[in-house]
Simulated scan of single mutants.
Amino acid sequence: MDLDRTDLAVVRELQTDGRLTYETLAQRVGLSRPATRARVQRLLAGGGVRVVAVVHPAVRELTTSAHLSIGVSGPAEPVARAIAAMPQAPYVTLTAGSRAIMAELRAKGLAELDRAIESVRSLHGVDAVDPLISLQQLKDPYLLAGRPDVPELDATDRLILDELERDGRLPFAELAERVGLSPGAARARTLRLLDGGVAKVLALVRPDLLGLGVLCGFAVRLEGERDTVARHIGGWDRVSLLSACMGRAELVGTISAESLTAVRKTLEEMRACAGVRAVESWVHLELVKERYDLTTPGS
């Protein structure tokens, strides 16, 4: 799918607010309402753009996470697919580097995270698992900041979140029918959840559609304190994700770039930063899974 300038404008607006009305979206991108609706439907049908609700991790109690570098004996793709089938894994990729697979796990506390890591280790074909335990998400376009400002959620609230995780642009009338409310009540509940920071509806877009088709992961070992280096690296446009972690490195993240040359330059700039001892890197070859509508066993 090739995106023209207007498509890109539509996508950028939906990345900020995935539930913008067609009227508002049309005004912002300079099209008629029917033309805007047709553009959005074409983008969604093409598979490169999904509009979903990203629920605050605290709501799902998924407060602990880890980045896993996974070595395999034999083909990597079947192992990656098996990891992607785990409910604790929102993100799995096939990579080129010292390890064949990179994955993120999220869980309800360290004990559950440890069990999930052991489940990965026990998969047929896995011969090494090197986890980096996340301490703090420093830069993440999909992470909601702060704590949700909404009282205890009831069963209907959770049904609304479940539906919006599957389709963030679900019309209020259809949402109301699915959760057993009137359209007005469904709208009021949804706005309360979104305004309260419980969830955010946004567009997930394949990076190549935005001209950022090369994704490179990195892990940084530091010589001194972390915060200054983290603020510096996290301010770079090409660094799309950054976490403080413990394990073999103090920082882990992702570079989203337009070319391998741009990746190489970014890595060189990183290695030249004061306080950086070493940088490990890997190239993401294929995105196997990217989903944020996670529930864990027993939830």
Results as ranks from 00 to 15, higher is better:
Asp4Pro: 00
Ala9Gly: 10
Arg19Leu: 12
Thr24Met: 08
Ala26Asn: 06
Leu31His: 04
Ser32Phe: 14
Ala35Asp: 10
Thr36Lys: 02
Gln41Gly: 01
Leu44Cys: 05
Leu44Gln: 03
Pro57Arg: 05
Glu61Trp: 09
Val72Ala: 07
Val72Lys: 02
Glu77Leu: 15
Pro78Phe: 11
Arg81Thr: 11
Met86Leu: 15
Ala100Ser: 15
Ala103Lys: 02
Glu104Ser: 07
Arg106Glu: 11
Leu113Glu: 02
His124Trp: 08
Val126Asn: 01
Val126Leu: 06
Val129Phe: 03
Gln136Asn: 05
Leu143Gln: 11
Ala145Lys: 14
Val150Ser: 03
Glu152Met: 12
Arg158Ile: 08
Leu159Arg: 13
Leu161Trp: 01
Ala176Ser: 07
Ala176Trp: 03
Val179Gln: 01
Gly184Asp: 14
Gly184Tyr: 11
Arg192Cys: 04
Asp195Thr: 12
Lys200Trp: 06
Val201Gln: 02
Pro207Ser: 13
Pro207Asp: 12
Pro207Ala: 13
Asp208Gln: 13
Val214Tyr: 01
Gly224Val: 05
Val229Thr: 05
Arg231Tyr: 00
Arg231Val: 04
His232Asp: 11
Ile233Trp: 07
Val239Glu: 01
Ser240Phe: 07
Ser240Asn: 07
Met246Glu: 15
Gly247Cys: 10
Ala249Leu: 06
Leu251Glu: 02
Thr254Arg: 06
Ile255Trp: 00
Thr266Arg: 01
Thr266Gln: 09
Glu268Lys: 11
Glu268Asp: 15
Met270Phe: 06
Arg271Val: 15
Glu280Pro: 00
Ser281Ile: 00
Ser281His: 12
Glu286Asp: 14
Leu287His: 05
Leu287Ser: 08
Asp293Asn: 15
Gly298Pro: 02
